[in-house]
Design a protein around this nucleic acid. Structure first.
Length: 678
DNA sequence: GTTAGGG
DNA sequence: CCCTAAC
């Protein structure tokens, strides 16, 4: 199962999965191709194989313009590929361009070469980070073969749309090869496949620097028998572990986790509707827009959204659940920490200090789509799960946090759900199918017309950690209605790095209200190179100091326990020396009884410090100053500050005593704090 | 909403 | 840091 999240605000991406619907018969005929899949070949190998495949197909076609033998282009391709991998320089493209090809005829090599060139360029552009590559060859159109490439980098997608090259003979070739009278062609194909395997094997050792080791490969071959066949290649990294096995187990079930765009834009990389550059730009625009939108709010709720609109789906009927747009709630929530408990009880908001994630909807749902081609001969149900909807996650994170931390936060929230495992529920015609021993036919799922009513849900495995789906009945199978039981909450610690910086840069009062906005905004605007660099770096690798930025404390949900509903205690964030200094200075100026003023004066930008926190800190400071240094713990506070604490505390205590005796002389907020003595 | 103080 | 009484 392919499950790449493209989380909101541009983290690295929901990604449409490969959904080649290859008839089983076709797979059987070309079983040798499956070995290509089994190879954990690198993307380049795959591309080469694809090229070879297409080359050989063109060769095997009777009307092909090529006079060369079947194997020679393949060998040439392989050799060239080796050279490319070894040299890794720009000349490799030229080498490919030198591939012998009859220029008078529109031949597959042309666009294959172009694709590979684009691929290389794209790979160079995103030499690090998650990379996804799509290759699609759709011969269902009249006289066209369309190939799209998509590369997904860390944050942006680089799309390469390759225009269609009219390939009448290619289409004809596929039609003819599907006929029974062309078994000999398949034999020719087999020869080619052997070459492919050899290529894959030979090149396996070759290190393509731009492809990561972890890159997995999903590749399916075009079905020879269907009128609409496709080749789709999906390279990806960081796959979830189940991805492969799921494919194997559910051979006829193709999962497509489409790109999540809350605008339901057409940019979804849906398997049957690949758009190229347009959608890429659209994504970026959405990303920018979304970030701006986010940054304009004090706190926001990131809710995974409906993956795609129905209009964008070729065979979409109706959504399983309406999309949830990312929105921000409660634009003005200065301090709610002490109200958090009630907020949680109402399931509406979460704490302001740390990021809170809550999975309100306990299940990840989706709706299956019946594939148009229902092969009645072997009674296989073909399903295409267009998307899984991530249950709503409420993300609350200080606006001082970076976009990078937001990405990581959301990612970790999702990951934390996945860690506990997911279970799949089947909904058919609104009813949950709990009897796993039923056949699809018995459950009525085999009736093709009703497959539109089939839905799947992904449910966090919150109870029994190991529940075998093969058991006939699973009483613990949670239903959609028990969303609250599947509650998952997380808390993040807001970024302290920025706060620290603010403290050191602008200690007492220099407020930088929009500073973080601009810094994040610059990420999308490129108008501020320095900040862009900084933030970009932060996206690539979080500096060690800000590791705790994303410290997340998942709330272990105990379904029946009321304790689980209690707000999570804020994560302890020790005061830094700079903060202590600011606090001491402010208290010296304002006194010990005006914590709100102290907060506004010296900690206005430290969103995570409430005036209660400051008061408590002062309390502990006084205590610390009074005890012996040996008894002190934590980060040592300079003695100078402790002395000032004692002085100020004594002074203002004295002042308070005086004020109680007689009315205030109205000299409360003098700028120059008089040096005082006990 | 703030403040003060106990936990 | 949390909680809560008191204002």
């Amino acid at each position: 199962m392919v499950f790449q999240n493209r989380l909101d605000c541009g983290s690295s991406g929901y990604q449409a999965a490969v959904v080649p619907h290859v008839p089983r018969s076709a797979r059987g005929k070309r079983s040798a191709r499956k070995k290509v899949e089994d190879h954990q070949t690198r993307g380049i190998d795959l591309l080469a194989n694809l090229a070879s495949k297409l080359l050989s197909e063109s060769e095997s076609f009777p009307n092909s313009c090529h006079n060369t033998s079947i194997s020679s282009p393949v060998a040439a391709t392989a050799a060239l590929k080796h050279e490319q991998i070894k040299k890794e320089d720009a000349s490799k493209f030229e080498a490919f361009d030198q591939l012998s090809c009859n220029e008078d005829v529109l031949c597959p090599e042309k666009f294959v070469r172009k694709q590979m060139k684009d691929h290389f360029e794209a790979a160079k552009a995103v030499s690090s980070g998650p990379a996804s590559l799509f290759v699609k060859s759709d011969v269902s159109d009249e006289d066209a073969i369309g190939v799209d490439f998509k590369f997904i980098g860390h944050d942006y997608k680089i799309g390469h749309g390759v225009d269609v090259v009219p390939e009448k003979y290619c289409k004809e070739r596929l039609h003819t090869s599907s006929a029974e009278s062309h078994e000999s062609k398949d034999l020719g194909s087999n020869t080619t496949l052997q070459d492919e395997e050899r290529i894959a094997r030979d090149t396996k050792d070759a290190k393509a620097s731009y492809m990561e080791d972890q890159m997995n490969l999903d590749a399916k071959s075009p079905g020879s028998g269907s009128s609409s066949s496709s080749i789709e290649v999906h390279l990806r990294r960081n796959d979830l572990p189940h991805s492969g096995s799921f494919h194997e187990q559910e051979d006829d079930m193709n999962l497509a986790v489409n790109k999540d765009d809350d605008d339901n834009s057409s940019g979804c990389t849906q398997s049957t509707d690949f758009t190229s550059k347009g959608s890429i730009l659209q994504h970026k625009d959405d990303y920018h827009h979304r970030c701006r939108k986010l940054l304009g709010s004090r706190l926001w709720k990131v809710a995974p959204t409906k993956l795609q609109d129905d209009e964008t789906a070729n065979y979409g009927k109706k959504p399983a659940l309406r999309g949830k747009r990312m929105c921000y709630a409660s634009p003005k929530t200065p301090r709610r920490s002490f109200k958090r408990r009630k907020l949680f009880e109402h399931y509406t908001e979460s704490a302001c200090e740390g990021g809170i994630y809550r999975q309100e909807n306990g299940a990840w749902s989706c709706r299956a789509e019946r594939k148009p081609c229902y092969n009645s001969s072997d009674y296989h149900v073909k399903l295409s799960i267009k998307s899984f909807e991530v249950p709503e996650l409420l993300v609350e994170i200080p606006e001082t946090a970076t976009v990078g931390s937001l990405k990581r936060t959301v990612l970790e929230a999702v990951t934390a759900i996945l860690v506990d495992g997911l279970r799949v529920g089947v909904l058919f015609q609104g009813q949950k199918v709990t009897d796993d021993s039923k056949t699809l036919h018995q459950a009525g799922i085999s009736q093709g017309d009703k497959l539109d009513d089939l839905g799947f849900i992904l449910e966090p495995n919150t109870r029994q950690p190991t529940v075998t789906l093969t058991s006939s009945k699973d009483p613990h199978f949670p239903s959609l209605g028990c969303a609250s039981e599947a509650l998952a909450r997380f808390q993040t610690v807001a970024s302290s790095a920025i706060d620290q910086l603010e403290f050191e840069d602008a200690l007492p009062v220099q407020t930088l209200p929009e500073n973080n906005h601009s810094s994040v905004h610059s990420l999308t605007d490129a108008s501020s190179p320095e900040k862009m660099t900084a933030d970009s770096l932060a996206l690539v690798a979080v500096p060690p100091k800000s590791v705790d930025v994303l410290a997340m404390v998942p709330l272990h949900n105990k379904p029946k326990s009321k304790r689980s509903e209690v707000a999570q205690r804020r994560v302890r964030r020790p005061f830094s020396v700079a903060e202590v200094e600011a606090l001491v200075q402010a208290v010296e100026k304002l006194g010990t009884g005006r914590w709100r003023d102290v907060k506004l004066c010296a900690f206005e930008n430290a969103k995570h410090r409430t005036y209660v926190d400051l008061k408590d800190k002062w309390k502990t400071l006084v205590h610390t100053a009074r005890i012996s240094p040996q008894q002190r713990r934590g980060e040592p506070v300079p003695q100078e500050f402790l002395d000032r604490v004692l002085s100020a505390h004594a002074y203002w205590s004295q002042q308070q005593a005086r004020l109680q005796v007689k009315p205030p002389p109205a000299e409360t907020c003098q700028l120059s704090y008089p040096k005082l003595q006990v």
